[in-house]
Every structure is written in structure tokens, then in C-alpha cells.
Write a protein that binds this DNA or RNA. Structure first.
Lengths: 164, 164
DNA sequence: TATTGTTATACTCTATAACTATA
DNA sequence: TATAGTTATAGAGTATAACAATA
């Protein structure tokens, strides 16, 4: 609010040297990136997330939330630690994520009978209804991904990455 | 700082209902996630980033910074808009990212001669030296990824994702 | 002592919007 | 008007650390 704010060339201490390029570059080389799988995985991942989030707009569910709902729905009673391990989400982050799902009345956290530390997770009826809708939307997203990749590569990737 | 802070069961309004599960679950079902490529891509991506960041510790370079340095190194004089489009990074984010690289004296932003709006990007000598070292480290990371995936699937994935 | 879950902090990433300057 | 770059903001993701309750 109170900070000085200047736009433009503020951070350009080398203005005296003029660059020579004049026409838009035709092809930009990726150089070493071209052999780095992680670079391409990241790009696909960005596309997937963007398309997924757009597709899930009607139910307002993000990728991590979706994965949590699906796994809770298929494994009622599992603990937060189990869920965190399954999804490779930090316990700390999962706590906040679940708190929000609970606030939307999509899940319940029951205290486990024989271990007071554990929370047994389960969907509420409302959560089940929303999850069903979300799965339909997610399937639509997946069809788009298959379309973009081709069915054979899609299946191939699934096989290759499932047991990474 | 001043907020009330209680730990534990604060957000558990359903404590009266006890859960039945008693022994650790043997296998947790992924259910619908198992057919969603995006889920597995995300997991691999997390592994890749973690390993990459750990590997690059000696040069303190993050994935996005590395990709920027590589592309600038291979395409000296390109503009921020071109770089942003190439790497699929937001212009706004790229500005901050480059600002930091410039502060570390790894890149320079020269004002373009024929278009006062453009910044022609290039590496400093120090940037070139660091990039060389970073590329060596990145290759080491890639070898680890190949080891984990298998050489054939790695190449397969590269082919499939390059022109996504 | 170790585990489960919570809170806090700090930084990065993603997505927008508003702004300056240049074209 | 449109484009290049900057700044601000808000939300999400990532990584730690510290803590209470329970085992």
C-alpha cells in the first residue's frame, strides 16, 4: 500500500547496450531441456490440472480434493495418515484440505474406537452425491486427455506410471 | 499470534459415533483414480521435482529457473514474452523469476534497440559458468529418472510427451 | 518414545488484474 | 488499441517445525 511503485525499466541497469535482434525469432531451441523428461511431464501436468479444474467448476472440486474424496469413498474408515500416505500429501496439508471438505459437509471425521488418535474418514450422503457427479465430470476430462494423447499412448503411459 | 490455539479434536463434531476399524488396512483402493493418468503424472512430477531440487542444491537453482537459464543460454537475445510462451510460464511470474536471476548476476536484460518495450535476455559470464555446472547436475538427475523408469519407457515417454 | 492430527510459518506456484511505457 | 514488462494480490501447493493427545 505505502511502498514506492515504479513501473518499467527500473531493474535494467544495462540499458546503454542495445540488442541487435529485430525480427521475431522463428524457432526457439529447448537445448538441454529436450532430453529432460521432467520438463515435458511438468507441461502435461499443467495442462491436465487446468483442464481438470475447468471441468470440475460445476462442483468446485480441485484435483487434490477429488483424489481425497475418491479414496475416502472407496475406503471408508481409513485414517488421515493412511490417506496421506496413499496420496503422497503432507499430513499437515491434508488436515487443512479435509477441514474444508468437512466444512462443506462432504466428509465426516469420526473418532476411532480403539485408537483415540485416529480419525476414521467417511463421506456424508451429500459427499457421496457430489462425488458421483464429480466422477462423471472427471471421466469427461479423461476423455479429452485420451483424445489429445491418442488412446494407445494414453494406455501406455498409464501402464508405465502406475507403479512408479 | 493472538489467536486461540487448541490442538486435537477441535473440529470433530461427530465424536459420539465410534468407528469400527481396528487393524491396519492391508490394501487401500485407488478406485477411479486408477484410470486417471493425471493422478499418476502428478505423482511422478512430485518425485521429479523433489529429486531435481535436491540434486541442484549445490547451485541453488529451481526447476523453473533452470529451464529459463537453459533457454536463454541457447537463444541469447530472446524477449521475456518469447521465453514465457516457450516455457508456458506466466509473464508476471517470469518477471519476478528473472529479477532474482538478475540479482544473482546470472542474466542480463538489455533494452532492445528497435523496440523499447522488449528486453533482450542473455546470460552473464557467471551465468554461463553456473549453467554448465547445473547441466551436469541435471544430467545426473535424469540418469536417476531413467534408472527408476527403465531406459525404454523413459524414451517412450519422451517421444509421447514432446509434442503434447 | 513414537504416532496421529493440528497449527504456524515461509516460500513457490498459479491466476488475475491494474499499471507504465511503448508501439 | 495492442503489446512488453512490472507490481500486487489471493489462493493453492510444498516443506518444516512445534505442539497436544494418545499409544
Amino acid at each position: 500500500m505505502t511502498g514506492t511503485r515504479r513501473a518499467g525499466t527500473q531493474s535494467l541497469p544495462f540499458r546503454s547496450v542495445a540488442a541487435k535482434r529485430r525480427s521475431p525469432r522463428l524457432a526457439i531451441s529447448l537445448d538441454a531441456l529436450d532430453s529432460h523428461l521432467g520438463y515435458f511431464i511438468r507441461r502435461v501436468q499443467i495442462w491436465v490440472f487446468q483442464d481438470f479444474i475447468r471441468t470440475m467448476k460445476p462442483v468446485d472440486i480441485r484435483p487434490a480434493q477429488f483424489s481425497a474424496l475418491v479414496v475416502i469413498g472407496a475406503n471408508p474408515g481409513l485414517s488421515q495418515a493412511e490417506l496421506a500416505a496413499t496420496l503422497a500429501i503432507e499430513r499437515a496439508r491434508l488436515a487443512r484440505l479435509l477441514h474444508r471438505l468437512q466444512a462443506r459437509n462432504l466428509i465426516r471425521r469420526l473418532q476411532s474406537g480403539d485408537d483415540g488418535r485416529r480419525h476414521a474418514l467417511q463421506l456424508t450422503p451429500q459427499g457421496r452425491t457430489l462425488l458421483a457427479r464429480a466422477k462423471t465430470l472427471a471421466a469427461r476430462h479423461e476423455r479429452r486427455l485420451i483424445e489429445k494423447l491418442g488412446a494407445a499412448p494414453h494406455e501406455m503411459l498409464l501402464q508405465a506410471l502406475r507403479d512408479f
